[in-house]
Simulated scan of single mutants.
Amino acid sequence: FVGGFSALVHKGASRADNNLMDSIPDALAATDFVCSSVNVGSTRAGINMDAAFKMADIVKKTAEATADRQCIGAGKLVVFCNAVEDNPFMAGAFHGSGEADAVVNVGVSGPGVVRSVLANMPKDADMTAISEAIKATVFKITRAGELMAREASKRLGVTKGILDLSLAPTPAEGDSVAEILETIGVGKCGGPGTTAALAMLNDAVKKGGVMASSSVGGLSGAFIPVSEDAGMIRAAEAGALPLEKLEAMTCVCSVGLDMIAIPGDTSVETIFGIIADECAIGMINNKTTAVRVIPAIGKKVGDRLEFGGLLGYAPVMPVNGHAGTVFAHRGGRMPAPINSLKN
Rank of each mutant, 00 (worst) to 15 (best):
D32L: 13
F33I: 12
N39E: 15
N39W: 07
N39C: 15
N39L: 08
N39T: 09
V40N: 05
S42N: 03
T43L: 11
R44C: 08
G46L: 12
G46I: 08
A52I: 06
A52S: 13
F53P: 00
K54G: 04
A56S: 13
A56L: 11
A56F: 10
D57W: 06
V59G: 01
V59W: 10
K60S: 11
K60C: 10
K60W: 09
A63L: 01
E64W: 01
A65L: 09
T66Y: 04
A67L: 01
D68N: 09
R69H: 02
R69Y: 03
Q70D: 14
Q70A: 13
C71Q: 01
G73V: 03
G73T: 01
G75F: 09
K76H: 05
K76T: 00
K76V: 00
K76W: 01
F80G: 00
A83D: 07
V84N: 06
E85F: 11
E85G: 08
P88L: 10
P88N: 09
F89G: 00
M90K: 02
A91I: 12
A91K: 00
A91M: 13
F94G: 00
F94R: 08
H95Y: 10
G96H: 06
G96L: 09
S97L: 09
E99G: 09
D101I: 01
A102F: 14
V104P: 01
V104L: 15
V104T: 07
N105V: 09
N105H: 15
G110I: 05
P111W: 12
G112C: 09
G112V: 04
G112Q: 03
V113M: 13
V113H: 13
V117A: 11
